[in-house]
Nucleic acid binder design. Structure first.
Lengths: 155, 155
DNA sequence: TAAGATTAAATCGTGTACGATGCAAATGTA
DNA sequence: TACATTTGCATCGTACACGATTTAATCTTA
């Protein structure tokens, strides 16, 4: 006899392991980020700026899938720490251009060791780089699917 | 010549796809949960209660990896909606026992269709159930690893 | 070119997360 | 049995997320 509500178990849904894995990963990064005095979402913003130097709020938003309601306060906090600058564009006064300060640039050197430290911690637990890479690959294809789904729903 | 900062790209880290996938999944569930007037973390708590009827705050916390600082306010909101009850244990006055109200029990019937709806939406996008199950499996093993890592760090 | 639509950020309100701390009940131990 | 320690929950402060709305600048188009 088939149980009626088996689907309603925590483990039997996609949502919970993602939720848990995301939070656990954030905690894995936290001690490293604390040394730079930044949070995890702030780190993600900086990853973009270290790669592109200058980006508008909405360009950052597209990459992180966040909107100004989340980004504006976050960016203001980074500005207060003097890690970034916020300037209105001359061409289009609506656009706010985010750029790194000298201090923000310098953080890149310190941050460069973080990915290696994370990978190293997996190696300590006998998880191979190959295995981690496989996780990454799986996750990226899942994100791709979910992203397509969500843009589809907006239409 | 090897680039020095390649590791610092958004896509080259485990963290971002997890963060993104988790948020996108929450959004996938949101319209269904809105009909029940509950949030995603509230839904996770209810999954536990539908399975176990009665649980202490800390028992719920163990399963969701959350502590009272997050759960207490969340549970109070569920109490206000008259979906759950909060009662001090007789045996141990420190413990707060969470139980479902009649309304909370009844929500289970409405929630039962959600997992099926989610799976169906993947099928609509030509993602097979097998594929989704594979994601789930990968994620569960990742969570297992991350969980072990985090408990290890606490010692 | 003036009125209406669109766009980019900002603002507001609600609900998590989470480190740190507080507090009372329960437990361990000399 | 006193008293220190531990445990279970609550509280506080900070920082996201995100739906909804607002504001100002830009674009469209009649």
């Amino acid at each position: 006899m088939k149980k009626k509500f088996t689907n309603l178990y925590l483990e039997n849904q996609l949502c919970f392991p993602l939720y848990a894995a995301s939070r656990l990963t954030t905690k894995l990064y936290a001690p490293h980020l604390k040394k730079l005095d930044i949070t995890y979402p702030q780190y993600l913003v900086l990853l973009i700026l270290w790669e592109h130097q200058t980006q508008s709020v909405s360009e950052i938003g597209q990459q992180l899938m966040l909107e100004s309601n989340t980004l504006t306060p976050l960016l203001k906090r980074l500005e207060q720490k003097e890690i970034i600058q916020r300037n209105r564009s001359n061409k289009d006064e609506r656009t706010v251009i985010i750029s790194l300060t000298k201090a923000g640039e310098n953080l890149k050197e310190q941050a460069a060791v973080i990915p290696e430290k994370i990978m190293g911690s997996f190696r300590d637990d006998n998880i191979s780089d190959t295995e981690v890479a496989a996780f990454e690959k799986t996750l990226l294809s899942l994100v791709k699917i979910l992203k397509e789904k969500s843009t589809k729903n907006e239409e």
